[in-house]
Structure formats: C-alpha cells, structure tokens
Design a protein around this nucleic acid. Structure first.
Length: 506
DNA sequence: TGTTGCGGGCGGC
DNA sequence: GCCGCCCGCAACA
C-alpha cells in the first residue's frame, strides 16, 4: 500500500512522526476533494487502509485494497443516498451504549456497534443491557456540524479515494471485524462440546457478570452472537484496534504475534477491554475543551465526575482505581439518553485525564513509549481532544466544529471557522511533531480554507497508531483476531490477565 | 438475519 | 441545487 509498508509496522509509529514525510497520509499531501471532477491520477503512492478514520481526512487507497474496496470502517457507517452514483457516501450511526452507562465489575463499558440496517438497529435497541438490564440507547454521531460524520468513497482510476468529514463525537463502537469475530466465536463455542457446560456456569444470570468466575472478562455474551463492545472504563474504545478484518496479506511481524496466535486458538471473542485499558492509559480527555472552558469542570464525570455521589454503582468497580470512575450513576437519570451518554463518555475522559495523568497503569507507560501516542490528540493528554466534553450534545461543542460543514472541503468556508477549528481542535502548536504536518498542509496547494481538513491530518496521522495494532493482529482469518483487541500497547496488561478472556465468558 | 449498495422521494436550507 | 434522511429493494453472506 503506501507509505507505511507492512514490513515495518513495528517502527511505523515512529516513522510516522519522526519523518515529516510520514506524518500525513499520502492522500492528504495531494490537493483534491472527493467532489472534484478530476481526482489525482498520479497516485504513485497509496495509503495503508485506515479502519478508524476520524476528522477531516483524505486517503488514497490502492484499488487492490480489499478493505477499501469494501468501504470498510471501524465506525458503524450506513449508506447514505447522495444521489451521486460516482461517490458513495456513508454516515456514522454512532454507538449503542447502556442507557445507564453502567459499569461492569471491572469498570468496563458496553459499546455496541449499531446495526446498520434500520430494522436490525431498532431491534437491537429493544434489547437490554446484559449487565444491568437497562435499556440500550443509541448515541448518534453529531461530529459533523451536528450531523453524522460522513465518509465518501470514490473509485477513480487505479485508486480508491476516501474522504471523511467530521470528527466522531462518541466512543468507538465495536468494530465490524470484532462483531463478526465474536459471532463466529460464539458459533464455535455453541458447537463446541464444552459449550453446554460453560454455558451453565454463565447463563444462570446472563446479566450478572459478578457471578462469573472471571469478573474481568471483557466480553459478555448476550443472546449468542450479540456483539458487545465492552470497554473498560472509558467509553472510548479508541485504542482498541484490532483489525482482524483487514485483508492485509502482508505478514505482520510483531513480538506479540505468537502470543496472539496462541491466544486466539482458544479465544473466540474479540475483546476490547484490553484496548480500553490502553485507552485509559494513553487516552486523555479529548475534546472541545477549548471551546467550552467551563465545561470540563461542570462535566458530570471528571474525576469527581466519575464518582457520582448518587451512584451506588460507583463502588462496584472493584479492581481499578480508574474503573471506579466510570461507574455510572445514571440509573434514574432523566437526561436524554444521548445527551447523557455524551457527557458521560466525555466526562470520563476527563476523569481519566485527571486521574491517570500519571498513568496509573503500566500500560500507559508502555503506550506512551509509542511516539504515535504522544502525538495523537486522542490519546495524548497533553492535547485537547474532542471527546472531553459532550461536544455534540452541547452548543458549545458544536461551535467548535460547526464551521466545518460538509461543504468546507470543497467550498470556501469562512476563515474564522476554519481557524477556530484548527486552533481549538488540534492545538497545532502543541503538536510538536505535527508542526511539520501543518506546515506541509499549509504549504501545499490547499488554502488555509482547507486547514480544517488538513488539520485532520494530524489526527489521522496520529491515529495511525490505531492501525498499528490492527496490522499486527490483523489476520485474514477472523479467528485470529480474537485478541486483536489487545493493542500492542496493552500487551502488558494482557499478560497480567492471561485468563480473563479465555475463561468463560460463554 | 444482517450488511451493503442503489435509488426514489421528501423536507429544510 | 445541495444535503440529510427515510424508505424500499436487491444481492449477498
């Protein structure tokens, strides 16, 4: 594929940031918009497929890239009719969470992938949280000026052009690959001789994970293959990158490969927890802090936020200092589910930032070692990130992104908005390693008007870390990625909980 | 049963 | 006219 050859995934993170040349996606280096009558034809390079794109980014994939061909995305994207058969448009559905935002014993959270089909989604939302039996609710994506983030795909020549508009203002749902993996895993389990026995152990109270031999299990079973993305602590599975589905055929040589492979042998499920831990560790509050100065303090979660006095559940988080933070007290909260969810998720991040500023987990240390993390606004606590606050739910939050409307990319937009976007959202100055990016972006043919999108480069570029783990764990065989959720960074933790995923969650 | 893509149609701006 | 969104349909897994 492109600049990031699979051969050096291990060093990819470094390469991405050590070299200005690697900071931006190839697609971002060229001046084009998905709506342009003519797209760049001299695409000598292609970008490596990005599963979790976020922000105003552009990528140029090889037409041979299977994932690109399938228009895959980690986010739950549904087809949107834009009445343009040349350009496939998809909009984000958001994420499905527990209406009470309950926390599992280990502090993890459920973050389901919204069903793409309207019917299936409605059906999905009728189900109850496997942990607290509360209703599930859909947190809609409002990351694009109040509208769902949109992804555009266009095949032109020998390349597949991808352009994303908007910044996801919600936690990551379980990736499609994870969902599929879990389903297949469940099927396997169901058909396995040991299933009935295990099942007895777990089924008595499907919703009571406390009863489970391994409370830390990150995966729950609900009605079989039902997919649950349980994220420890944070609502942001952002770090949970397992991209099993990637069809990258290139061998990913990673220290953890063997481990993963071995683990996968038994574990059918795609677990995100590990990823989450990683999240917590490395992922700082991200969000529109800048836009809403007072928001952080007022948030329901921050440090204190997490601890809702009124919530008895808060105490249910036994094993993690951090996890307790995520306890959700909203049991009776009349708040709009969406709004509430947003605040929660965002607040949590704050909490994490504050609480974990020093990295309560060893993971963090490990994670921080990755240059990518340091630069990623999502993960780096040093940089403001969107998710800090209920960006989408609050007007203030919207203000920060409102300037970047769908048309921004291909239509001149008010500078003020653009500038604001860049300054606030990406804190360019703070990204020492990203300066080159901006410079590059600004130096290229794009006018400052396009900064918003280019700014996304930073994000996207930084987000490559996300893909790193994916690549590492990526496997053509879904079976292989059960543990893919473990990011390379979270590996340490994985080691510390060698059994939680294997033991019976089914 | 769910995903994906297509396309008609509607309403708001 | 553009856009978001709803709906239905068909192919596919």
């Amino acid at each position: 594929m492109g600049r990031w050859s699979n051969a050096d995934e291990q060093s990819m993170d470094k390469d991405q940031f050590d070299s200005s040349d690697c900071v931006c996606s190839f697609g971002m280096k060229l001046t084009w918009d998905i709506n342009d009558p003519k797209l760049p034809q001299d695409t000598k390079q292609c970008d490596a497929f990005q599963e979790w794109t976020d922000g105003y980014v552009r990528y140029i994939y090889s037409s041979e890239d299977k994932n690109a061909q399938r228009h895959l995305s980690g986010w739950a994207m549904r087809n949107t009719n834009n009445h343009n058969c040349q350009i496939l448009k998809k909009s984000c559905l958001g994420v499905v969470v527990c209406s009470r935002n309950c926390s599992l014993p280990d502090g993890s959270k459920l973050q389901l992938r919204p069903a793409i089909c309207d019917k299936a989604r409605q059906k999905q939302q009728k189900k109850l949280c496997p942990n607290c039996n509360s209703a599930l609710e859909l947190i809609p994506c409002r990351g694009h000026s109040g509208y769902p983030v949109t992804n555009f795909w266009r095949v032109d020549g020998k390349a597949i052009f991808f352009q994303a508009k908007g910044v996801h203002d919600h936690p990551r749902p379980e990736s499609k690959s994870e969902t599929e993996a879990r389903r297949s895993a469940v099927k396997r389990r169901m058909s396995s001789p040991n299933f009935s026995q295990k099942r007895r152990l777990v089924e008595p109270e499907p919703g009571r994970y406390h009863d489970m031999a391994f409370p830390n299990i990150h995966q729950l079973t609900m009605e079989g293959p039902e997919r649950f993305s349980i994220i420890a602590e944070s609502n942001f599975p952002i770090q949970t990158q397992h991209y099993p589905p990637f069809q990258n055929t290139e061998p990913y040589k990673f220290p953890y490969d063997t481990h993963t492979a071995a683990a996968m042998a038994d574990a059918p499920s795609s677990l995100q927890k590990p990823a989450n831990h990683r999240l917590y560790m490395t992922c700082p509050p991200c969000g529109y802090d800048f836009a809403v100065p007072g928001y952080l303090g007022s948030g329901p979660y921050p440090t204190a936020l997490y601890k809702d006095p009124s919530s008895p559940q808060t105490e249910t988080e036994p094993n993690k200092s951090g996890s307790s933070l995520s306890a959700m007290p909203h049991g009776t909260s009349p708040l709009g589910s969406h709004e509430r969810s947003y605040t929660e998720s965002t607040g949590k991040h704050h909490g994490w930032k504050q609480i974990l500023s020093k990295g309560a987990y060893g993971e963090r240390g490990d994670y921080s070692q990755l240059p990518t993390n340091a630069n990623h606004h999502y993960y780096n606590s040093d940089y403001p990130c969107r998710y800090t606050g209920p960006a989408p739910a609050t007007p203030a939050a919207l203000q920060t992104i409102i300037t970047t409307t769908t048309k921004v990319s291909y239509q001149p937009c008010p500078k003020p908005s653009v500038v604001k976007y860049g300054e606030n959202l990406y804190d360019v100055k703070g990204l020492s390693n990203c300066n080159s990016i901006l410079e590059e972006a600004s130096s290229n043919s794009y006018s400052d008007l396009k900064i918003p999108e280019d700014s996304g480069v930073i994000k996207s570029a930084l987000s490559y870390q996300d893909t790193l783990p994916a690549k590492i764990e990526r496997s053509e065989n879904f079976e292989g990625y059960r543990y893919s959720s473990y990011s390379s960074n979270s590996y340490p933790e994985r080691m510390s909980h060698p059994f939680r995923y294997d033991s019976g969650e089914y």
